[in-house]
Write a protein that binds this DNA or RNA. Structure first.
Length: 510
RNA sequence: GCUCCGUUCGUCUAGUGGUUAGGACGCAAGGUUUUCAUCCUUGUAGCAGGGGUUCGAUUCCCCUACGGAGUACCA
């Protein structure tokens, strides 16, 4: 098996991410794109984005934009693509349509392909019949002579069908009894006997190529050196290898990435899992048709999202878990991609975001926080927003959660938490708080450095209970037993507001 | 059904022919604390099963089980 190291010395890799614009890009797709990107950048190569839209019936408006915006949000930079251009365009398969016919023709000429007139209905019927008998229908050397194609039909029959404009497809003529040997950078050597394979359709009757043809032709024409794609393609690898050989082209290196599995139960991750379990399956909000939530709108930092995704199936071989994109680029290696499917864990995703919440520059979080506060109907200037963010960021994982930690800074308690009152507002509390009020009244500078020692000294001198005073104090200021350090809170509120809240609390709680 | 791929704590994973099988998330307990969190410490839990090979297998081979993918004129 060739290793990456050997390759590095001989070439600058060109890799591609080739999604179909059939809907929002799935988180597994984002990971495939990311690994391609990391591999390319690690080895000073190029990352291309090719849109595979050969099936017009499945084309979804907005999907192309969504794909590009997702990559952009993640910080996955495209070197060549439909937006960026490049020397190997066009990068949208529908715009390369003529090309594929030519290459299919080449295969026809060299005898590696043939044309077939069987209709989809006829084949469906055959499959059904065979299934009833417990057998699988397979269009290959065993059966092709009994079907309607240029191998079984006489020349004049073929001519007649063509004159009548009967639609036909072009199929690959899969050889019989040949061991096809393949190399996968992740799985090593794989051998499959060609007799188990079928004569795949290369060119559809609508004049468009199938994935298999278009993919191989484009990867060759675009000089792709490494094909890094999802494991769902592994079963068609023999076909692709055969196609390269039929064309007489060099076979690129292949790496088939393990799939992303759903958090519990069986199967691969799907949109339904996200809906059911309350986490996004897509990077961005999908606003069309069957709307779907996204990581961006759910408040994830792109860095956290990318970090999490990167570690689902790859690891650096060390205990390090937090990576910037640059660190991922310099440490990424296909050799360290695992073989088995990874189950997606929403809890860990949350943890990653918590880590990044602590690492972000305060300015960036404050910006989002100001918007959040505005949404709640209040205003806060940048300086104060930054103070509040610094005060509570370590307690939360998402910007949205900042509000629940700071709501009481913006308005005095509308009510007092009943169980807290029961627990902390005792008979002596009003007297204590009244006395505390007069102590506070004597302080002008309300910064924690000033208020804290004064209040604590007073508590000690009077031999009051620290808990009794502070909890009751917190109750009148916050309305509940939660929040950051009280002296920080009143430092932010200021003297006037603090005394107001005390008065109000005394009045209502008695 | 057939073909291919895979299997280390619940999850993501490291790792080795002889290790106390390591880390992270989660969970639990304790500590810090004026509250709630955070944070810190400790703990919890794993080599799918059966055969080989070997002085010795979690590690190498085979089988089984389980999981996954593919089996379209979809990608």
């Amino acid at each position: 098996m060739k290793t990456e190291r050997q390759l590095n010395m001989t070439m600058k890799p060109r890799v591609r991410f080739a999604p179909s614009p059939t809907g929002p890009l799935h988180i597994g797709g984002v990971r495939t794109a990311l690994y391609n990107f990391l591999f390319a950048k690690r080895n000073n190569g190029s990352f291309l984005l090719r849109i595979e839209d050969t099936d017009r019936s499945r084309y979804v408006e907005g999907a192309e934009e969504y794909i590009m915006e997702s990559l952009e949000w993640c910080g996955i930079r495209v070197d060549e693509g439909i937006r960026e251009g490049g020397g190997y365009g066009p990068y949208r398969q529908s715009e390369r349509k003529e090309l594929y016919g030519k290459y299919a023709g080449m295969l026809l000429e060299s005898g590696w392909a043939y044309i077939a007139f069987d209709t989809a209905e006829e084949l469906d019927e055959l499959r059904r019949e065979n299934e009833k008998k417990g057998e699988a229908f397979i269009y290959n050397a065993q059966t092709r002579h009994k079907l309607k194609n240029s191998l079984s039909l006489k020349d004049d029959e073929i001519l007649k069908l063509q004159e009548e404009n009967i639609p036909y497809v072009i199929r690959f003529k899969m050889p019989e009894g040949e061991n096809i040997e393949m190399n996968d950078m992740i799985r090593g050597r794989v051998i499959v006997n060609s007799s188990t394979l079928d004569d795949k359709v290369l060119f559809k009757s609508d004049g468009m190529p199938t994935y298999h043809l278009a993919n191989v032709v484009d990867d060759h024409l675009m000089e792709i050196t490494h094909v890094i794609r999802g494991e769902e393609w592994l079963p068609s690898l023999p076909l692709h290898v055969m196609l390269y050989k039929a064309f007489g082209w060099n076979v690129p290196y292949f790496a088939h990435l393990p799939l992303l599995l759903k958090p519990e139960g069986k199967g691969k991750l799907s949109k339904r899992d996200g809906d059911k379990m309350g986490f996004p399956v897509f990077p961005l909000y999908w606003p069309y048709g069957d709307k779907a939530r996204g990581y961006r709108e759910d408040g994830y930092f792109p860095e956290a999202f990318v970090n999490m995704i990167a570690l689902l199936g790859w690891n650096p071989g060390t205990d390090k878990e937090l990576f910037t994109m640059d660190e991922l680029i310099s440490e990424f290696s296909i050799d360290r991609v695992g073989k088995s499917g990874a189950r997606f864990d929403p809890e860990k995703a949350r943890w990653f975001n918590h880590q990044y919440m602590q690492l972000q520059p305060v300015e960036r979080i404050a910006q989002d926080y100001i918007i959040l506060v505005k949404d709640k109907g209040f205003n806060v200037d940048t300086k104060k927003a930054e103070m509040l963010v610094e005060m509570v960021r370590e307690r939360v994982s998402f910007v949205n959660e900042l509000w629940d930690q700071t709501d009481f800074f913006f308005s005095p308690p509308q009510s007092y938490d009943q169980s807290a009152v029961k627990k902390r507002w005792k008979e002596g509390s009003p007297r204590l708080i009244r006395e505390l009020r007069s102590v506070l009244e004597g302080i002008d500078d309300f910064t924690p450095d000033h208020t804290e020692p004064v209040v604590k000294n007073w508590i000690q001198e009077k031999e009051y209970g620290m808990g009794a005073v502070m909890n009751a104090f917190r109750l009148v200021v916050v309305g509940a037993l939660r929040g950051p350090h009280l002296f920080d809170i009143i430092g932010f509120l200021g003297k006037g507001e603090t005394l107001n809240r005390i008065d109000r609390g005394l009045e209502i709680l008695g």
